[in-house]
Each structure stands twice: as structure tokens, then as C-alpha cells.
């Protein structure tokens, strides 16, 4: 593998790597906050779970964009 291809491979790894760091951190915060709320108010667990899944889906989309870009870059090798 030449130098150019190695750099392209590294770019793909960075695209998905960096794109997963911060959404993962934020998803952790969302999960923690939701669990805390459920512990405080177990009767509202259903509503909290719905809101949590929604917030997580919005965060996950960011990682998915990174994943798609990584696939596109890998296709170029």
C-alpha cells in the first residue's frame, strides 16, 4: 500500500473515530440524566424513556453521518 492510500485509510478511521467520541459522551449524559429522573419519579418512566430514545436518536445521527463518510472514503481506496 502506498503512502496516499495509507493516508486515505487513516482519514476514514478519523472520520468515524472523532464522530463517535462526542455523541457517545453526550449519549452517556442523556442516559444518566434519564436514569436519575426515573429514580426520582418512577411513575413517569414511560414518558422519560420516550424522550430519552428521541434525544439519543438525534445524537446518534451525528455518528451515522461520520460512518457514512467513512464508508465513502473507504470506497475510494
Amino acid at each position: 500500500m502506498g503512502m496516499a492510500e495509507a493516508i486515505v485509510a487513516l482519514a476514514a478511521a478519523l472520520a468515524i473515530g472523532i464522530a463517535s467520541i462526542f455523541p457517545a459522551y453526550s449519549q452517556g449524559k442523556v442516559g444518566a440524566a434519564a436514569m436519575e429522573s426515573i429514580a426520582r419519579q418512577p411513575e413517569a418512566a414511560g414518558d422519560i424513556r420516550t424522550a430519552m430514545i428521541l434525544a439519543m436518536a438525534l445524537l446518534e445521527a451525528l455518528t451515522i453521518y461520520g460512518l457514512l463518510i467513512a464508508f465513502m472514503i473507504i470506497g475510494k481506496i
Partner: peptide, 16 residues
């Protein structure tokens, strides 16, 4: 756009 990319990326990534 984000709806379609989210669903596609998830399922395609999972398959891969």
C-alpha cells in the same frame, strides 16, 4: 434528509 440518512446509515452499518 436526516430521517433518511439516519435509517439508511444504521441499517447499512449493521449489515456491514
Amino acid at each position: 434528509l436526516s430521517l433518511s440518512l439516519r435509517l439508511y446509515g444504521n441499517i447499512y452499518g449493521e449489515e456491514t
